[in-house]
Amino acid sequence: MIKYFTCIISGIWNLAKGLFVTLKNVFVKPVTLQYPTQKLEMTQRYRGLVDLYPEKCIKCGQCVKICPTACLDLSVKAGEGADKKKEFGHFKYNMELCCFCGLCEQVCPTQAIYMNKIYEIAVYEHGKLHIDLLDKDKYDEWANPDVK
């Protein structure tokens, strides 16, 4: 009989302890962000979309070779100048396949290919995910989603 009541009392006490924990958290400032108005700052090393400094690129093709999902496509043609310096044919980036692993960025000997800080990458059309890396303003639409 005594055990019966101590069981009830201790049960109530332990429930109260749990309730106290949740009560304590009511007075903690909410940790979530109000997303479209408040945005998370991306870290220094954040791996967003693949981007390119065309002038730094030496067209070595290591990024294309290491990409696990084959989302980069580089074609190079011999230059018309006297030194026969290699020139871009095209440099395509298929974001549908990209797994954002960052290997291309790390393998690049001249830091020409890098990953930017854009993370709002939802689009309505497949076509928009096929990106020409040589295009200067390819990410304008993503970087400033409010600008139409």
């Binding site: 949740t22 009560l23 958290n25 009511v26 903690v28 400032k29 909410p30 940790v31 979530t32 109000q34």
Partner: peptide
């Protein structure tokens, strides 16, 4: 609202 604040949300 109550549940949100218990869970430290808005």
């Amino acid at each position: 609202k109550v549940s949100a604040h218990i869970q430290t949300r808005y």
